[in-house]
């Protein structure tokens, strides 16, 4: 009885972990299913067919490719822009600083439906055609906010004395930034970039407003397919994405723990 008491926290942690991981486990399991009929809701028979032929469902790999492409470009652009904004906000006093600080939060606070529809209106007014470019602009816009928040938190903890020390030791402003500021801000920048990628890859609502028939992203493909029965390949891609995310996060953990615990 007391053994149970002592390990109550462990049990709770395991229960929460199971609760969080069940969907991923189900997805992984059903990626090996050979469904009877068009719906992949009952486990019928073990099969690796979807794994050996992930592009087997029509249009799936085109949409995946488009989502990856948009995700990479959007997260890179948002990271570059957001990092610069975060440094400006964190380091300098200027006119409109507090207004910028507030406005940066707006895309995070605005309901996606509202933002999606208003962006569509804006693009129509400006004559930007729906499709890949419109989606990219929209994604960069909302990703920037998240990058700014992630990087700014990191910049706030940087000791400006370190940059003074670098200058004192003969580093010019570029060297100081490359060798001291950037490495110290890197964890925040990396976190911002990852967040931006997953937000972009995952986005459905805003994307849907600004897409054209030739720009079907992966989330749009899955949504469209769900009415007719989701192909098993979607489960395969879902499982792969989950594993990739797991690897990235674990690598990050490993690097930071090694940094903190490096012994001579």
């Amino acid at each position: 009885m007391s053994w149970i008491k002592r390990h109550l926290i462990t049990f709770a942690a395991i229960a929460v972990l199971i609760y969080m991981l069940v969907p991923n486990v189900i997805v992984a399991a059903f990626s090996f299913n050979d469904p009877k009929g068009k719906y992949n809701y009952n486990f019928n028979e073990f099969s690796t067919a979807a794994w050996t032929n992930p592009c087997g469902a029509q249009g799936i790999c085109e949409s995946l490719g488009l989502s990856l492409q948009i995700g990479v470009i959007a997260s890179l652009a948002a990271t570059a822009l957001g990092t610069m904004i975060a440094f400006a906000l964190g380091r300098y006093r200027f006119r409109g600083r507090s207004a910028t600080n507030l406005l940066i939060f707006m895309p995070m606070a605005t309901p996606e439906v509202v933002m999606g529809s208003s962006l569509l209106t804006l693009f129509l007014m400006l004559g930007v055609p729906s499709g890949r470019t419109a989606i990219l602009i929209a994604h960069i816009m909302f990703c920037v906010s998240f990058v700014v928040v992630a990087v700014k938190a990191r910049v706030a903890t940087l000791d400006p004395k370190l940059e003074e020390a670098a200058a004192d030791l003969g580093a010019n402003p570029t060297q100081t930034f490359m060798r001291v500021t950037l490495p110290l801000a890197a964890p925040g920048i990396a976190a911002g970039a990852l967040l931006a990628f997953s937000l972009s890859f995952d986005d459905y609502i805003i994307t849907n407003f600004n897409a054209s028939p030739s720009s079907i992203t992966f989330p749009m493909y899955v949504w469209g397919a769900s009415a007719r029965g989701v192909p098993v390949q979607v489960y395969v891609i879902g499982t792969v994405m989950f594993l990739l995310a797991l690897i990235v996060v674990m690598t990050g953990q490993l690097i930071s723990s090694r940094r903190n615990r490096q012994v001579a």
């Binding site: 000791d159 004395k161 370190l162 003074e164 020390a165 001291v180 490495p183 110290l184 940094r259």
Partner: peptide
Amino acid sequence: VFQSYALFPH
């Protein structure tokens, strides 16, 4: 030599 030392932590 800074009062807070300002050593590069990385």
